[in-house]
C-alpha cells in the first residue's frame, strides 16, 4: 500500500470528510512524526509502536572507488519498535 492508496482507503471510511482534508491530514500526521524525531523526541503510539532515534557513532570508512580513508561523522537514525498489538496481529496472520 502506498501513501495515495492509504489516502483513498481512509477517504472511503471517512465519507464525512472532504477528500482534500483526508490528504492534508495524512500528510500532517507524517510530518508531525518526522518533526518530533528531528527534535530528538520519541513518538509513542499505543498498540502500534514507537519511533525513536538510535545513535551511530562516527567511524572510519573507505571510499570504495579510491580506497581513501574518510571519517564518517556520528549521526542519528530513526528506529521503529512495533507495539504488542502490532506484533501479535502481524504474527497471528502469518500462521493462518
Amino acid at each position: 500500500m502506498t501513501k495515495s492508496e492509504l489516502i483513498e482507503r481512509l477517504a472511503a471510511r471517512q465519507t464525512h470528510l472532504m477528500h482534500k482534508d483526508v490528504e492534508l491530514a495524512v500528510k500532517l500526521i507524517l510530518d508531525r512524526v518526522s518533526m518530533a524525531l528531528a527534535k530528538q523526541d520519541r513518538v509513542e503510539i499505543r498498540g502500534f509502536g514507537s519511533f525513536a532515534l538510535h545513535h551511530r557513532p562516527s567511524r572510519i570508512g573507505r571510499n570504495p572507488k579510491t580506497g581513501e580513508a574518510v571519517t564518517i561523522p556520528a549521526k542519528h537514525v530513526p528506529h521503529f519498535k512495533p507495539g504488542k498489538e502490532m506484533r501479535e496481529r502481524v504474527n497471528d496472520s502469518a500462521s493462518d
Binding site: 492509504l6 481512509l10 471510511r13 471517512q14 500526521i29 502490532m86 496472520s93
Partner: peptide, 14 residues
C-alpha cells in the same frame, strides 16, 4: 482519524 490512520496501516500489515 488518528485512530483510523494507524489502524489502516496495521490492517494492511496484518
Amino acid at each position: 482519524f488518528v485512530d483510523l490512520f494507524f489502524e489502516e496501516i496495521r490492517e494492511r500489515l496484518q
